[in-house]
Design a protein around this nucleic acid. Structure first.
Lengths: 180, 180
DNA sequence: GCTTTTTACTTGAAACCTCAACCTCTAGCT
DNA sequence: AGCTAGAGGTTGAGGTTTCAAGTAAAAAGC
């Protein structure tokens, strides 16, 4: 049905043929995968629109500002920010360039490593966050959290943690020199 | 912690102040929301890369081909395809233009409605699908399904269905004239 | 029948993302 | 010290997405 996760033709019988037949998805597996993709598409779109309309930036950019706001001194090394946000350095570079143009972030050189750059949240950036946080939480609640029971929330959290774990660039994790 | 779903400053006490204080997320709610965003970001990226590398197109485009492959006659009206894929018509228009350029889809006029267009999967398009389906299922399994227990899969399916339901453009649903 | 409103779809520009190539600096050799 | 491999970050080109605006045909009003 979905995502060509079942045999392209309706040929292949379940039993493994001589050639090692791919492990196509069962009907239930497909249902799960399909709902996941649909919901995540819709949700991302929804929040992007909410924030674009209210705060003038896409969801990812907003989340970058948030991470800066939470960091000590409201500043983070580019690479660390990229890792926290789960995006590539390149994407972050472009994003910060835009946020800088909007006046919400400023770059600063790292004194201890001349290659390094800090992304620093400006006061203006913080203001944007303060103004939009209430609306955004409300959006997240009404589209997502408030629709789930506490048990469902708990289950989902565990599930997504497992998935994330499997996809991290292995990240031995401990070694982030900048964190003292 | 995440997504400015908690008070911007560490001010606000839990009790509702005189002005109706936003319902900030609790620690557990934040954990859930954060893992969801992280995992979904990583997963989307992962599959986009897998398909871009192997099939020469992003995940969404692949899924469009799949939906066409599953449709009767391997053809679908633009609007219906857009609804199935949960994307805007505009996005679909651009996407189909590209897929057409690659030779995987062809457009055809709808005889009964001169405004209408069909997107039709070409044989070439079907071939691409056949070649790449096994690799893609495997990717979906190893990044996602195979990491979850059957109970987790079931729970996730239910959860995502709830979320999706809340975000659909209400879609009374029954009325799709083209479906006879 | 004729106007008005909707529906179906496309378009172009601007924003965004990806990928590979690049530069600079650090750290680890020797 | 000098050399090299790798880390930190940016860049530009090309592909993708969004948003607002546009065309054309169908449906609904009158």
């Amino acid at each position: 049905m979905e995502y060509m996760t079942t045999a392209p033709t309706s040929a292949a019988a379940p039993g493994p043929a001589g050639t090692d037949e791919p492990r196509w998805l069962s009907a239930e597996e497909q249902r799960v995968w399909r709902s996941y993709i649909e919901a995540s598409t819709l949700l991302e779109d929804h929040l992007d629109r909410q924030l674009q309309r209210d705060a003038g930036m896409p969801h990812l950019y907003y989340s970058l500002l948030v991470k800066l706001a939470e960091a000590p001194e409201r500043r983070l090394r580019m690479t660390e920010l990229a890792m926290l946000a789960k995006i590539t350095r390149s994407r972050l570079s472009h994003a910060v360039a835009r946020l800088e143009k909007s006046g919400w972030v400023r770059r600063e050189n790292c004194p201890s490593d001349k290659r390094g750059q800090f992304a620093v949240l400006t006061d203006e950036g913080f203001e944007v966050l303060r103004r939009n946080a209430p609306g955004h939480v409300e959006a997240v609640r009404q589209a997502f959290l408030d629709r789930l029971t506490p048990e469902q929330q708990k289950a989902l959290g565990e599930i997504m943690e497992i998935v994330a774990e499997g996809l991290q660039p292995s990240e031995a994790g401990a070694d982030l020199p900048w964190l003292r």
